[in-house]
Simulated scan of single mutants.
Amino acid sequence: MTNLEPGRRPGSTGGTRDTVAPPAMIVSDLDGTFLSPDGTVSTINADAVVAAQRAGIPVIFATGRPIRWLDVISDLPGIHPMVIASNGAVLYDVTERRIVRSHTIEGSLALQAIRVLRDALPGSRFAFEAGQNFGYEPGYLLTDDAVEDPAVTVGPADELAVGGDHVKVLLRHPSKSSDELAVAATELVGDLLTVTHSSTPGSRLIEISRLGVSKASMLAEVCTDLAIPLSDVAAFGDMPNDLDLLTTVGRPHAMRNAHPLLLDLDLTVVPSNEESGVGRTISGWLE
């Protein structure tokens, strides 16, 4: 069972005032969690990050986004420069714009996995995330396949797979839900790779990382670097790719808008991202 904050009930909802003492570190997902539904940072959340920094509490983001999609927070005052990106495959310094460390999938293993998945899940289409570059096979995108971006390559999946190492392999299916795909893919390649997803209903998309790689695994490395125990870390998330993170830290929080898999756990539930639940909870600690 997940540890809860003292004096809080499973499923309780955090407000603007919280009598619990502040944690030693705060870790938050971005989409569906820290970011508002329109993808921006609310004033409440931005102010809370600055207040936490002033109180000596590092605020670190852990996201499924690749490093090229981090501009939304790159100039946000008060954040810790280390960002856990690509579901834990990359640790990125947003201040110096450099990769500090990464845990990638070798091309030969990616090829082995997509062949197994394609045979068992006909109609699957694949994409390959390298952080700075992205490649996908025709039919992967839900819209027009033509993308004019020098960092994006379109080609046969087998060729893209062996073209280099990958921080993520992505699988999209025409009919199966993300939850169904995650279960099936875990049964098929779970002994070789880590399967998760952070998809909204209808996207039919899963994300595949190197075996053992997750937001939690990279956070453990960061906590070792900063000499902060995981038991004194507070984390916020909303999707299955946050599950390892929330079951690893001492003070886990699920957003009110979270995936049912998270809401079924004994986690402290805070207001939704539309209500700036992360910022309100942080402000409550600091008040």
Rank of each mutant, 00 (worst) to 15 (best):
A120W: 01
L121V: 00
P122I: 00
P122S: 00
G123H: 04
G123L: 10
G123M: 07
S124D: 03
S124I: 02
S124A: 15
R125L: 04
R125E: 03
R125K: 14
F126M: 08
F126L: 09
F126H: 08
F126S: 09
A127S: 14
A127G: 10
A127R: 04
F128Y: 12
E129V: 03
E129T: 03
E129L: 03
A130N: 06
A130T: 08
A130G: 15
A130V: 02
A130F: 01
G131I: 09
Q132S: 14
N133M: 06
N133L: 08
F134G: 01
F134E: 00
F134D: 01
F134L: 09
F134A: 03
Y136W: 07
Y136R: 14
Y136S: 08
Y136P: 05
E137W: 08
E137G: 10
P138W: 04
P138A: 09
G139T: 04
G139N: 06
G139W: 07
Y140G: 01
Y140T: 02
L141K: 10
L142A: 14
L142W: 10
T143W: 09
D144V: 03
D144L: 03
D144R: 08
D144K: 03
V147S: 06
V147Y: 06
V147P: 02
V147W: 06
V147Q: 08
E148P: 01
E148N: 14
E148L: 15
D149A: 15
D149V: 14
D149F: 14
P150L: 07
P150T: 09
A151T: 15
A151Q: 13
V152N: 11
V152Q: 12
V152A: 11
T153R: 15
T153M: 13
T153E: 13
V154G: 01
G155D: 12
G155Y: 09
P156A: 13
P156L: 07
A157G: 02
A157M: 04
D158S: 08
D158G: 01
E159A: 12
L160W: 10
L160K: 10
